[in-house]
Design a protein around this nucleic acid. Structure first.
Length: 210
DNA sequence: ACATTAAGTGATT
DNA sequence: AATCACTTAATGT
């Protein structure tokens, strides 16, 4: 765990901050598919990703999901920042996209480090910024792109975070992420396959155009 | 061999 | 793009 911390964050933080992280953080391994933080849950810890990937989802009143963005190694969840500003309930759901290792840092520590380490300040601010940009990007795709483009982008993103051009998933699961129906996904996938963008198998989608 | 789950398709709105 | 109704294909028991 120490090596991985060094590897992912060593160039960002000074030595004493890294030591402090190592002392206070709780190491956790999350299996694929597990919910890490759910909507309405109060946030007590802030996650730092060491490996793997996490998808961030929003849920509507009917319980339907919509994927917002992926988090990769070296990322952290922007939602946790807002709990330092008063709100302590999560507005989003975080699910492990693949097997994931992370460090859980008590939110109280964030305040302390904010004042003590400028590298920590910078990290938080930059994370907030990149998260914001990713959110804008997904808003754009939602508002301006058609299903076929959205779907292809989603598959490419998924292939990227999982570092594998072959995605293990069903049409149904993809439909849930994009908030559409399975039938539509099947149809659009079929067309993408004809266009030579992807290759379809049962429980498996291969992205050719990466 | 049978049941279950995933995927493909036409028709309708 | 969503829904229905149905078919076909792959997998598990």
């Amino acid at each position: 765990m120490k090596e991985k911390l060094q590897q992912q964050y060593g160039f960002l933080f000074e030595k004493d901050l890294l030591d402090a992280i190592e002392r206070t953080a709780i190491y956790k391994e999350i299996p694929k598919g597990k919910i890490i933080i759910d909507i309405g849950q109060s946030i007590t810890h802030m996650p730092l990703l060491l490996s793997g990937a996490i998808k961030i989802l929003r849920e509507d009143s009917d319980g339907d999901e919509l994927l917002l963005y992926f988090l990769e190694k070296g990322d952290t969840c922007a939602m946790t920042f807002s709990c330092c500003l008063g709100t302590s309930k999560s507005e989003i759901r975080a699910v492990a996209e693949s097997d994931t290792e992370l460090l859980m840092i008590p939110v109280a520590q964030m305040d302390v480090w904010m004042g003590r380490h400028k590298s920590w300040q910078k990290f938080i601010l930059e994370s907030y910024h990149t998260r914001m940009m990713e959110l804008l990007e997904t808003v754009d795709t939602l508002a301006f792109m058609k299903m076929d483009e959205r779907l292809l982008k989603h598959l490419q993103d998924k292939a990227k975070v999982t570092h594998d051009a072959i995605i293990q998933t069903t049409h149904h699961e993809v439909a849930l992420d994009l908030h559409t129906s399975r039938v539509v996904v099947s149809r659009v996938l079929k067309r993408l396959e004809k266009d030579g963008k992807i290759k379809l198998h049962r429980n498996r989608i291969q992205v050719l155009d990466v």
